[in-house]
Design a protein around this nucleic acid. Sequence first.
DNA 1: ATGTGC
Length: 463
Amino acid sequence: MNGRQLQKLGVPEECVREAITAIQFAISSGARDSKQIKTDIKQIVESPEAYLADEHFAKFAQALIDERDFVRPAPVAYETWGRDGIDRETHYQMKLACSVPVAAAGALMPDAHVGYGLPIGGVLACENAVIPYAVGVDIACRMKLSVLDIEPEAMDSKFNLFKEALEGGTRFGVGGEYQKPQAHDVMDADWSITRITREKKDRAWKQLGTSGSGNHFVEFGLLTLTERDDELDLDAGEYVALLSHSGSRGAGAAVCSTYSGIAQAQLPKRYEDLGRLAWLELDSEAGQEYWAAMNLMGDYAAANHDVIHRQVSKLLGSHILAGVENHHNFAWKETHDGKEMIVHRKGATPAAVGELGVIPGSMADPAFVVRGKGNPASLGSASHGAGRQMSRTKAREKYSWKAVKNDLEKKGVRVLSAGADEVPGAYKDIRQVMNEQADLVDIVARFDPKIVKMCDDGSKAED
DNA sequence: ATGTGC
């Protein structure tokens, strides 16, 4: 009897495997006749309790009872920051994420919007499980800010030098890579920990020191501290800083899709609507592999920024005085409420007590260096930016890039290249977002973008 | 956000 025939008799899809095993056992041991088995199955489906002690059908009967009595757990509650700015679809998606059976706690940051699986701006803690799409496609997408030993006035008086440093020290775009790979210790790490990292190593090496497309950028700006910060060892004042936003490029995306694919294939039938929220038990083989690969992608993305800052600051002929960096697409083992959990932050900045991070606005608006307050309700997290208020498609329709570029120049922001979908108007107001998360982070310094480089989508104004 | 396959 095949699976379809069994389902016709009322066997739920989830129990077909147990049914087949039991039937084979019962027939081969001579206890049942293959002609009568249909009647037997019907009876077991009708009253499985009567078969709990049956030599052949006990396991099948138990599976039927488990399936009949299954109740999906209620979603875990989550707190939301900046409630007014977050749409219904985002909440729907967050609730679904919080109903994953391994979910233990969650929070929604004020820049949250719909993403694959978990919303971007979503924080999700799981017990002994990791969800590749709750980390995100761009594993270890992150920020790095370096304070440089050069006078702020030089951004105007030596504009061409800054421009050439950005143009020469960066590379953008999907598939963007260097012909001659850059040197970095991260390429001495063991990339054979998983098949996918082994296969992607050479490509990753060529992509070391590159930025992707979309919202990735490398920019110079003016960093302002209103008071001295001992940890950064910077006095109050104005500094030139280099700020970059990039991640783990093609290698990270391949790790995400590989392990989310494995997780989705293992998803129990009754959870199939969870799709990209598919999880891996951390102590399973695939879970261990993902965890190792994710951490390697973390080191790789950090190295990626290192190379960018090394190249750009060298071309500029300046040195790095201080720095701040943080992942905002990653998962960590942390203890919350006395329990060890896997905390996924997808488009969310870690903000434990005293922890430094960078939260960018848009190319026309400031980024902020922040220090975490360790708010337990956000699982020690904050937003990773201002958040989109307009889709990329809508932004391209609504804004003329030429007009935006002129407007930006009036505000003192020079854009070397960017896409029309990244116009500042497509983003929420970062100052409001910072106000909404005043209980999550303190502001340490403000960074105003001055010379911006992003991926060119071809719609750039030529004049 | 990325890169491949259609």
